[in-house]
């Protein structure tokens, strides 16, 4: 019986994706680079039959997630939510995200939303000032593809330690914004 000293390709991929997820949340607002672009690589490192998920407007991803054995549930019940936040309607739907309970704040949802971090002036979104754990002083950030109404919705949903954790995904770029981060719209 020999020990497997090298990880398989899938193991390396999920390990690397998780490391970026972890550092993105530990250092909010900094752009991390994923080994593979897109939601599927992120989901692969986290989601299995012990989880529930909700996908909006992406049938292919929903099918892929269902293959892991995870349960597709309504947005209000989901552990992991993959949904855009680009229009006021999207944001209204996301107001129902689970925020956990005071005894179990870890039962809150994690939201993965597409965004773009590029420098093109069209639709870059408002300037945001982030502060809180994981941020040395403060960090300013612009994320396009997120409706301006999202940030007030997030603020009203979060009563720390209650609240959802957010990942913004742009191709292979990843920004984590946990509930502990204070976001000010400048």
């Amino acid at each position: 019986m020999s020990l497997e000293l090298l990880p398989t390709a899938a193991e390396s991929r999920t390990n690397a994706a998780f490391e970026e997820l972890m550092w993105a949340l530990a250092r909010p607002g900094l752009i991390r680079r994923l080994p593979l672009a897109g939601f599927a690589a992120l989901a692969e490192s986290l989601i299995d039959r012990e989880c529930s998920f909700h996908v909006r407007h992406d049938a292919a991803l929903a099918e892929r997630l269902a293959e892991t054995g995870a349960r597709a549930v309504s947005l209000a019940d989901a552990d992991y939510v993959f949904a855009p936040a680009g229009s006021p309607e999207d944001v209204t739907a996301l107001a129902g995200l689970r925020v956990g309970t005071l005894s179990y704040p870890d039962e809150a949802a994690t939201l993965f939303a597409p965004a773009h971090f590029g420098q093109e002036p069209a639709g870059r979104g408002p300037r945001l000032r982030l502060s809180g754990p994981g941020i040395r002083e403060a960090i300013t950030l612009q994320a396009g593809g997120v409706d301006p109404s999202f940030w007030p919705m997030r603020e009203s949903a979060i009563r720390y330690p209650l609240g959802f954790d957010l990942y913004l995904v742009d191709g292979d770029g990843l920004i984590g914004i946990p509930r502990s981060t204070k976001v000010e719209v400048l």
Binding site: L21, L25, P105, P178
Partner: peptide
């Protein structure tokens, strides 16, 4: 195994989100 790791990964992320 991967399923044990996925479970710990999910917990670590929540632990970081609520220090």
């Amino acid at each position: 195994d991967e399923s044990a790791k996925r479970e710990i990964r999910r917990r670590i992320l929540k632990a970081i989100a609520v220090p």
